[in-house]
Nucleic acid binder design. Structure first.
Length: 257
DNA sequence: GGTCGCCTGGTA
DNA sequence: TACCAGGCGACC
């Protein structure tokens, strides 16, 4: 269930297990991953040291010696599992990165929608991303500027990674509930005071989720996944609608346009 | 703007 | 058996 807090947790895990270590071998176990990782690409990573593990929104960048980079995205169901080359890979392991010291990083992903790509020096594999909501760059000014003049519903805009890198479907719904904003509200029409509340809600939710040891079970969410249940603020029934093909949960009474 | 495809698994 | 899933890029 990787939203930004889970990706950050995974990043730390890999950082601890892998930084300073040499890659012995990278192997794709699933054809979707094999398609993106040619044999020669995989070979070119052999012997390289993992120097840094960075996160940009939900993207992970492993900086390797010689200027190479591995770009990882968990999509819907990916995660890192740290184990040993001596044991059999888990059933849902899609890609294995074996280190020289016998540590094995497994990209486990039941749905196999995650991506792992290797890039030679000089290539920037990241798409254009807005500021990380956990960083100081993300504030009301930024949000107001990023949304100015746009005619999209606020929920859809929040999922645009150029607006805020790392906000996913769950936290978009949660933040809009906290800020009492109807997810169907048109971005350009929202007043600055409401955007300030929204920016603060996003920051606070992601910060809290990142420091919590839990990893986001359903009942930690106030609106997400609660169709038909009473709103925790006003007791009206939570509604589920579809926006841009994704579920949106909100309270039709206390979240206003 | 919306819809589809990528993939598999869990649940009604 | 059908529908649903937290992402995202390609397409109309």
């Amino acid at each position: 269930m990787p939203e930004l807090p889970e990706v950050e947790r995974a990043r730390r895990l890999v950082e601890k297990a892998a930084v300073g270590h040499r890659i012995a071998r990278i192997r794709a176990l699933h054809r979707a991953h094999a398609r993106r990782l040619s044999k020669s690409r995989a070979t070119s990573a052999r012997g390289r040291v993992i120097e840094r593990v960075e996160r940009y929104g939900k993207h992970q960048l492993l900086r390797l010696s010689g200027g190479w980079m591995a770009h990882v995205h968990f999509r819907m169901s990916g995660d890192w599992e740290i184990g040993s080359t001596a044991t059999a890979p888990s059933p849902h392991a899609r890609l294995l990165m074996d280190l020289a010291d016998g540590t094995r990083l497994s990209l486990v992903d039941p749905r196999a929608l995650s991506t792992f790509t290797l890039h030679p020096p000089g290539v920037d594999p990241l798409p254009r991303l807005g500021p990380d909501p956990l960083s100081a760059d993300f504030d009301t000014n930024w949000l107001a500027g990023a949304l100015r003049g746009r005619r999209v519903s606020i929920k859809v805009a929040l999922l645009d990674q150029r607006v805020a890198a790392g906000v996913g479907n769950i936290y978009a719904a949660e933040a809009l509930w906290v800020a009492r904003i109807d997810p169907r509200a048109i971005t350009g029409t929202l007043r600055r005071t409401r955007l300030a509340r929204l920016a603060e809600a996003i920051r606070q939710l992601l910060r809290a989720a990142s420091s919590a040891r839990g990893h986001g079970t359903r009942d930690e969410f106030v609106v997400y996944g609660r169709e038909g249940e009473p709103c925790l603020r006003c007791r009206a029934r939570i509604r589920r609608i579809v926006q841009a093909g994704r579920s949106t949960y909100f309270c039709p009474r206390c979240q206003r346009r």
